[in-house]
Write a protein that binds this DNA or RNA. Structure first.
Length: 476
RNA sequence: UCCUCCUUAGCUCAGUUGGUUAGAGCGGUUGACUGUUAAUCAAUAGGUCCCUGGUUCGAGCCCAGGAGGAGGAGCCA
């Protein structure tokens, strides 16, 4: 009976004949094969009596080779595992030349593994990350489905450049060496595939709003593209974003939803990915051993996750945050690179980190930002100075959620569009939703990879997505 | 895009003031070993010192330019 390694390890019946298939991790003492098939982080031990096998078979049981082992599933004689397979038959499914196979049983740096992204899923760390990535995506769909949201597929190719969320990748079928030109020398996009200039989406939000203003509660979950030349551990050129949008909701409903949603996802991983979390927790401890004490995590990974579940996110307005920062020690002692001295300035990373990691030591929701530093579609507050925007900041990661109540008043929105120098013709369809049956509504964007960083304890988004796309890197 | 740092064996790194034949650990190979847990022990092979140019009697080391990587900043999710 062919069993996955996950099934074999949890088999209630013992002393049965089983077949397992997987990739060899180590072959110890000419006798013990640690076999992994990725269904679980655990390996199954296959015990080989080498006198019963041809030497050329034994020689091919190398790290990385794919093999099939049949034999009796028994209680293990040794410590370290509960059951093992006493090999009676071994088939070599695919050899791996040990002189060439790069993943040997030793520590490899994350930087090196990025260069072999086609093989890194076979490591413990990336196996755990990819399994968690699946479960986290599933938890997101489950949460929204259970709450009555509809999954809306926003377009990936967009003809609008009004989203205002950064540089876009152009999509074209024109011959780049000889594009059709207008009389003034500019490129004639009327001859392009869509008859206009098009780009990859930087946000599905505007389309999600259209959905919410018909189905009440929707969410998008898809790839998102930013052509920014960002070289940081928190940015990708291609990443996945979740954007719920809810009609009849205001900024405070929005915060409630975001907090409940994040806690649901974190709890789901705690309940469903225990083995992988345990491994990643130890990995993080090992990785931080070389760091000075004050840069190490205050708590082990799973405790950090539980801590977030058990505590309310701290909610404060931008104005309150500015006052706290103004009177903070690093501001008074001029330790901040950017000193906080007046209302209206944009918060820098160092300020956000201070609030999250020093002042409150838990996730923080900042809301009601100055209108000048936020996007055109955010709802103007009655003070005429601020908009109903909210950002959720997580320790070690920074901004994980950015959202707002949307401007539903046509006249106010038209004025904002003019202020931001956006052509009304570009967003005529967006404006019509305010013309016909407009209602208050709100939503937010969650960076999937940033949530992955938090739940896995990894520190670079390039290590929580299978094949990262970053400036100068689109291999695989 | 800006700032800082890095690039030496398959991997992780050391390499003194510029000086002969560039080292270590891990991994690999060969041998030993039938209850190991990244097995252990012994022996052994393995190098375009990122690239281009320059300085010098002599460059892994100094200088200039380039490429790639990492961390931080900005942009943001």
């Amino acid at each position: 009976m062919w069993l996955t390694i996950k099934e074999a390890l949890s088999s209630e019946k013992l002393n049965i004949n089983v077949t397992v298939k997987g990739w060899v991790r180590t072959f110890r003492s000419n006798r013990f094969i640690a076999l992994s098939d990725g269904t679980t982080i655990k390996t199954i031990q296959c015990v080989v009596d080498f006198e019963n096998f041809d030497e050329f078979i034994i020689k091919k049981i190398n790290t990385g080779a794919a093999i099939e082992v049949s034999g009796n599933l028994v209680e293990s004689l040794g410590k370290g595992q509960t059951v093992e397979v006493i090999a009676e038959e071994i088939k070599i499914l695919g050899e791996a030349n040990p002189e060439e196979f790069p993943l040997q049983p030793k520590k490899h740096s994350l930087e090196f593994l990025r260069e072999i992204a086609h093989l890194r899923p076979r490591t413990n760390t990336f196996g755990a990350v990819l399994r968690i990535r699946h479960h986290l995506a599933f938890a997101i769909h489950k949460y929204f489905n259970d709450k009555g949201y509809f999954y809306l597929h926003a377009p990936i190719i967009t003809g609008s450049d009004a989203e205002g969320a950064g540089e876009m990748f152009k999509v074209t079928t024109l011959d780049l060496n000889n594009p059709p030109k207008n009389e003034d020398g500019s490129i004639n996009y009327k001859e392009d595939f869509f008859g206009k200039a098009t780009n990859l989406t930087v946000s599905g939000q505007l389309e999600a709003e259209l959905g919410a203003l018909a189905l009440s509660k929707v969410y998008t979950f898809g790839p998102t593209f930013r052509a920014e030349n960002s070289n940081t551990s928190r940015h990708l050129a291609e990443f996945w974003m979740i954007e719920p949008e809810v009609a009849f909701a205001d900024i405070f409903d929005n915060m409630d939803i975001a907090e409940e949603f994040l806690k649901y996802c974190i709890n789901y991983i705690l309940e469903n990915c225990g083995d992988d979390l345990e491994f990643l927790e130890q990995r993080k401890i090992d990785a931080e051993k070389d760091l000075p004490q004050d840069q190490r995590s205050a708590m082990p990974l799973r405790e950090t996750l539980k801590f977030v579940l058990e505590n309310n996110f701290e909610r404060l307005t931008y104005t309150e945050a500015i006052n706290i920062l103004k009177n903070s020690k690093p501001n008074k002692k001029k330790k901040f690179q950017y000193l906080v001295n007046e209302w209206g300035v944009d918060l820098q990373s160092e300020h956000e980190r201070f609030l999250v990691e020093k002042e409150f030591k838990k996730p923080v929701i900042l809301y009601n930002y100055p209108k000048e530093i936020k996007a055109f579609y955010m709802r103007q507050n009655d003070d005429n100075k601020t908009v109903a925007a909210m950002d959720i900041l997580f320790p070690g990661i920074g901004e994980i959620v950015g959202g707002s109540q949307r401007e539903e008043r046509l006249d106010v929105l038209k004025q904002k569009i003019a202020d931001f120098n956006i052509e009304e013709e570009e967003v005529w369809w967006y404006l019509e939703t305010r013309k016909f049956g407009t209602v208050p509504h709100a939503g937010f964007g969650l960076g999937f990879e940033r949530l992955m960083l938090f739940v896995t304890g990894m520190t670079n988004v390039r290590d929580v997505i299978p094949f990262p796309r970053t400036p100068k890197n689109a291999e695989f």
